[in-house]
Every structure is written in C-alpha cells, then in structure tokens.
Nucleic acid binder design. Structure first.
Lengths: 321, 321
DNA sequence: ATGCAAATTTGACTTTTGTCGAGAGCCGTG
DNA sequence: CACGGCTCTCGACAAAAGTCAAATTTGCAT
C-alpha cells in the first residue's frame, strides 16, 4: 500500500498538532487548508492510530487488592476496576480498562490470539486505534453461524482493524455434528496450520464463559439448555474459547468437546501472556477453574470479583492449615 | 512514594476523560469538582506522563530517502525530517522528531545512556513526558563545570525527569589536567562501576560534535581554539561523548583523550540501539566518521544532510568501481 | 465530452476547553 | 490565635476545537 497523498496530509497535520504543539489554525495555515479540514484530519489520525493517546493503567495495578490477588493466585499481573465508583455502567469500566491493558501489553511484531464473547467484543468495540507494525491477530476457535454481532471472526477482525494488524480467521465451524467430522477437519492443512500457529502467539485475549442457559453456546444453538445442564452435572465449570473445562481447568471429557474446533488448552498455556477479562460477577466459578488450569497470567476484573477471589483464597488457606 | 490523594484524583480524571471519552464537565460532576479543576488535572496528567500522546514516526522512515540512507550505510533505521517544509525553525523539527523516535525506542525496564550537547538538551527540552517503569538514565561522560545550561548532568537529569526514570549521574569532571589523574580517577570504584555499566545499556542517545572553534569543548574551556585546530590537523574528525574521534570513528591517540573520563567507544558499540541525532549541516564529516566507527545504528537527520550522505555514498561507489 | 455520485473542503455556528485572578482552606510560626 | 505564605479551587471569560450543511472538486462510467 503506497502512501496516498491524503495519508501524508493526515500525518503532517497530526505531526504539527501533536508533536509540535501548534494550534489547529496554525496547522491550517502551514498546510494551506481550512481549519475545519485540519480538525477532520486530526480525527482521522486518531482513528487510524497515527497518534496514540493512552492512559497509564498503573493505578489499577498499584491497588493493594490487586497485589493480594496476584500473590494469592500466582498471577503475573492483576488490574482491578473499582466498581463502586465513577461510572454509570460499571461493566463498561472493566472493558475500558481491559482495552487499555491490552494495548499496553501488545508489542510490535506480536502475534495475538483472540477468542470470542460479549466481553471480548465490547473490548474490541471501545478499544482505541493503534498503529502497530507486523502484528497478527489470530482467531482461537471456530466460528458460529449465528447472527450474533460478536461472532469469533468479528472479534478477531475488529481487533485487527483497530490495531492496523493482519487478521487471521478460522474458516471452520466451532462445533460439528459428529466427532469424526471434527477430527477430519482438524486434520485439514488449512485448519491444522492455524491450530498449530496458536502456540506461537505472544499474547492471548479471552474471557471465560459460564455453564448455564445464558451462555453464548446456548444462545448460538451450539448446545441446548438441557445439554448444558447435563454437562454441568458431569463437572463442566466454564467455557474457554468454545470448549468446556472442568473445575481443574482441564478439557472436560465429553462428546461436545470432541466435536469442537478450537485451540488446545496446551497451546493456550504455551502463550506467554494470557490476558483474561471477566466482567460478570456470576462467572466466579468459571474464573476459578480457568485460574486453576493455568489459563491466565494476566487478569482484569472488577472490585467485587476481586473480593470474592480473596475470600475464597483465604478460606482455602484456613482449610489447609 | 505512596500515592497521594491528589495523584489519585489526577489519575481518575485522566481515566474518565481519555479512556472513557467523557467531556470535562461530565468528569467534573462525576468527581464533584469544578470543570476548571478537571482541566488543570488533565494538564498535570499530561505533564506527568499518566497519559501519553504519541504520534507515529512511521512517515519519516517510510520516506524513500530514509531507506536509501539505511541501505547505503547499513543502518538499522533512519528518520529524515523534511527541512523544506512546514516549520519556521527547521532544527526544532529534527529535535521534535528525535524526541518522538526516542520515546518510541524506549521500553520499560531499559537502561539508557545519554551524552550531552545542545542537540541533546533541545531534545530533552521538547520531549513529552512518559511514565516508563524501571527505566534508568545513565550519563555517558564526565561533567563540565561551565555554566552552560546543557551540561552533561543536566541532559541526563532532564531526560530522566521526563521519563519518570532514575537518573544516574557521573560525579567526575569530563577532562582532567593530567593523564595520571584521569587514570586514577577511572580506577575509583564509583567511577569504574559507572563506566562498566554503560555497556549494559539498551539504548544510547547522543549527537556528534564538530572539531572547530564552535565546539562545546571549546566553549566550555576544555580545549582552546588553537588546541582544537592542532587536533584537527592530527586527524580529529568529530566529538562523541566528549572524546575526539578520527575519520574511522576510532578514538584519536592524543593527550586530551587520555585525560577524558567518558564511555569507551567499545562500550558504546555494545549498546544495542545507538540513536544518533544530528541537527547542523556542518556536522557532515563528524557524522561520517561516527557512522564509519559503527557508533550509530539509528539515525535522525534533516533532509539536506540525508542528501549529502547519499551523494557521498554514490561517489564512493563510483570510485570503487 | 458529459453527467452523476462520492468524496472532500469550506465557512458559519455551537460546544468544549484553557486560563486567570479572586477567594477559600490549610499549616507552621511568631 | 492571628498572621503571612502556600496551595488548591472556582467562576467567568476568551480561545480553541468540533460539527454540519452547502459548495466544490474528484473520479468514473457512460
């Protein structure tokens, strides 16, 4: 892609305005265009990631509670969004924080694995634009045909778009009707390569799903509420990248899982930075399972969830002693 | 340093404004303070590096000329500030670009070596603030007593301040009166450690000085114009971190150099990223020497200088064939 | 060439933001 | 406890930035 003259102009305007600190009208006269155009270019510059405005997430890690959670569960880093506070919609707060944290963790040249779900899509949606070079965003699991606005491929593509990165989609359904078909499909070169490439990621972004009738798996028709209930009784504790995990954070041995096309947990664990974001308080059990299974090294949660985690850890310690 | 309540407020305001995209009056009502205060907090947030506004320097590397210079001299990356263009003062343009490039190259946990000079101080002066963690800025050479506003320690400290980093100063004069004293001083544990630590840097920032009466070495009284002239006739081609180098980019064998307390060129070459910034067109020869000596991997120059470099490279190629 | 649609640019208007001096609160000191 | 000196905060005004519909240019297919 050659640099179009328009892009050049955007860049110059952004440079004069943000780097040199000129005012818009000064920029306008420098470039011989109207101030209104400058304003427009600047907006584009922000939307393209030519300029980057990021706020430090330091404060949220500095929190004592965050430190405690890190220690209690052996995580690399924890960010806690203060639910009590500021905003009308606290769940947005977590997503905004997650987006900032995510952008802070991404580096040039990285390969990033992205799962799917409402949480992830919300993050993608509010994430600001960046101009990373040589970044690849790969989809961690197969697709769902449902007319959901946050399909796996959508999440991947949207994040890739925001990062000015390359998006690598998974051209396979998440769930197949027979185990045999799933096995054959997994053996297909295209799919196999994609699956193999997951362990090479530097960063993964996912959430964890609950095992109930509200799950996306149910809403998308991959599983019926009754099946979900059965799985639950068989030990299902959460959903990671479309797969059912048990309380230890291992893949549950069930037909459904064998019919799924998704990243193997071992591949996920091979990823250096595993950023997990949990918005809903109801996902306490699933989160515990995911942590138990070593599926997360970096965690973004709300204050309430943090408290529950700490209570749980304290109780476990008491029991042990 | 505990988080003072004021800092907390600044952080919250910055968060709501920049991350959530609220307007200042909305932030004000959320935090129950006046909008004017919010505006003030936001300014502080920018000045502290809690929020980071950076513009991509992509465009300046994308330039065909920059690529040519990279190829011709085997450099890792070159940025060219278009002199013709926009700004009243073209030399500022180079400094602004250099500051952006520098901030782009710095990573958390880095150790950064900083030399001194008008160029470096200008860069420090216009550089925006950042909130890097665990960054150490070390001074590459001894100090000059002169009442210059851009003394080595000033450059180091100012850059450290902007980055919220730790500044490690050199408590020794740049030049001593006898070689013996210099040798003894270099053997002092404090100084020796500092010198030894230079090779561990991840990034160096310096310029190159010209060997003439305008040199800082002359202005600060380290050398007289006559001495400078003599050195020049002996093969002096440039000044790096207070040391005289010859046309091959090696330390010139002279009394002055033996009396200097500064980073050894070998230590500088051990630094992975060596960012050299040259503002003045008159520094063409010194720059060539520095490049020849492998003292720079990353280069920020003006368009005019770039042209001269390319012309030189072309001439050399012609001569060779 | 010609006409049409899409994109770009602009001037005029509105909203948002920056700034300044006045006043309020706070603290150590005499 | 009254006093200056200090910082922090606010209201009001000025400056700057955002927005929109109309005008212009551009690109493209006819």
């Amino acid at each position: 892609m050659a640099i179009r003259p328009a892009e050049q102009l955007i860049h110059k305007a952004a440079w004069l305005y943000y780097a040199h600190g000129l005012r818009q009208d000064e920029v306008a006269s420098q470039l011989n265009i109207s101030r209104a155009s400058v304003a427009m270019y600047l907006r584009k510059a922000r939307e393209t990631g030519i300029v980057n405005i990021s706020t430090s997430t330091q404060l949220f890690t500095d929190d004592v509670m965050a430190r405690k959670v890190e220690d209690a569960f052996g995580l690399d880093a924890v960010w806690i969004a203060p639910e009590n506070a500021y905003l009308a919609d606290p769940s947005t707060d977590i997503a905004v924080l997650a987006a900032s944290v995510f952008l802070e963790l991404v580096k040039k040249g990285d390969r990033i694995g992205v799962a799917w779900g409402r949480t992830i899509y919300t993050i993608a949606d509010i994430m600001s634009f960046a101009d990373l070079q040589d970044v690849t965003v790969v989809q961690l699991c197969g697709n769902l045909g449902a007319p959901y606005s946050y399909r796996p491929d959508q999440c991947t593509m949207e994040i890739a778009r925001r990062l000015n990165a390359k998006g690598l989609n998974f051209y396979a359904p998440l769930v197949l009707s027979t185990e045999g078909l799933a096995k054959s499909l997994r053996a297909e070169p295209v799919i196999r390569d994609q699956l193999a490439g997951i362990a090479d990621c530097d960063l993964a972004l996912y959430s964890v799903g609950a095992v109930d009738a509200d799950s996306h798996l149910v809403k998308c028709g991959a599983l019926s509420p009754a099946e979900m209930e059965t799985l639950r009784s068989q030990g299902a504790a959460g959903v990671i990248a479309g797969q059912i995990i048990d309380a230890r954070g291992e893949v549950l041995d069930c037909s459904y899982n064998r019919r799924v096309i998704s990243a193997e947990l071992a591949s996920l664990r091979a990823i250096e930075k595993r950023l997990m974001v949990v918005q809903e308080d109801t996902k306490f059990e699933p989160l515990l399972s995911a942590i138990a299974g070593g599926l997360c090294t970096h965690l973004v949660i709300g204050a309430h969830m943090a408290e529950r985690l700490l209570q749980h850890a304290a109780a476990a310690t008491r029991k042990a002693s």
